[in-house]
Design a protein around this nucleic acid. Structure first.
Lengths: 185, 185
DNA sequence: AGCACCATGTAATCTGTTACATGATTGG
DNA sequence: CCAATCATGTAACAGATTACATGGTGCT
């Protein structure tokens, strides 16, 4: 059972008041980007639902000639709902990667395309790493630091692997060299 | 634009004939587990659709008193469709992790629960790592080896991080120690 | 001039999950 | 004797994406 957008929106608002637009940006650039993603089409309805349920409140800021900016805040019952949601007994962790799928079936893809995908994947990690490193918030909670550090660590090691094995992989037929560190011993 | 189950089923069949049940097992235990997941409710309809479209063929093996076993094989046009799908211009990579969400908001979760989640997350990586290590196929393609090696490498480093920071994180209030290696220089 | 960013929202659609339905065999 | 594994399939539902609808501001 995976968290839905409503829960994640509550989480976002627990970090401070925000508009739907700003929450979206957090999914793209902020710390959430590492473990979640969502688009406007799901955020706005989620926020309206939370409002109807009294889990958030909303202050409107009118700006002539453009949509009214709606700033949402977490209520006490919203925070309680967030705490309850975070205390579920089970959790999951899913990765869905087209890059890895393509690389896995690389022998079915033409070499030029293969290189592009490989390099795009590296670029993806480089960009993500830069964003994570940028997001240095000073008065953060320890969980924020853990997750940020985790992201940096894992992405760095992914990138290391890809860069180390690039030539060999793109040449095509040799096994991938892996300096075996003791695993799970 | 992310690959759908139909495409992934074609991929699974490109590794050899299989039943829907066997394809499901590959998502759980096999090399696919690292970058994809799917349940029966999506696999069986996908296979039927592929059959209707002539991308796979099906041989039935009757066994008295239980459902007829249906063994699917990739056709030439099925392989062509797979190649075409793998050659798309864009790819994405998504992680959705409840564990990281809970850990991120750890300050809202009671300490006992926090420990459980942390250890469950470690256990998740340990199990995944064991499965990946088991899946040693000899006459694999280079892409298979790359992805397998990647998975082992990344999961090992994730686990390292979690184990290194466990005590400090669970104590609660101190920043997480991270031996800074040069990143993205 | 044109594009990107700000800002909200809805409707159609898609994609996949969960639960249900069925039932034999094997191992602890 | 009970649970797990084998084996397929459907229907109801959930959850989120995409595209559409609207339009001002600021940078190049």
């Amino acid at each position: 059972m995976s968290f839905d957008i409503k829960t994640i929106c509550l989480g976002a608002l627990s970090l401070g008041d925000a508009t739907g637009y700003e929450i979206r940006k957090q999914f793209e650039e902020g710390p959430f980007a590492y473990f979640y993603d969502a688009s406007f089409g799901s955020i706005y309805p989620a926020l309206n639902k939370l409002l109807a349920d009294g889990l958030v409140t909303c202050t409107s800021e009118a700006h002539p000639g453009r949509p009214t900016k709606k700033i949402y805040s977490l209520t006490a019952s919203g925070e309680a709902a967030l705490r309850a949601a975070l205390s579920v007994g089970s959790a999951d962790h899913k990765v869905r990667s087209d890059f890895l799928a393509i690389l896995f079936f690389a022998h079915l893809v033409d070499p030029a395309q293969r290189v592009k995908v490989y390099d795009a994947y590296c670029a993806f990690y480089r960009t993500a790493l830069a964003k994570l490193a940028d997001a240095v918030d000073c008065d953060e909670k320890f969980g924020h630091q853990l997750v940020q550090g985790f992201g940096v660590h894992v992405y760095t090691s992914a990138l290391d692997y890809l860069e180390r094995n690039r030539e060999q992989f793109l040449q095509g037929d040799m096994p991938v060299a892996e300096p075996r560190r003791a695993v799970g011993k």
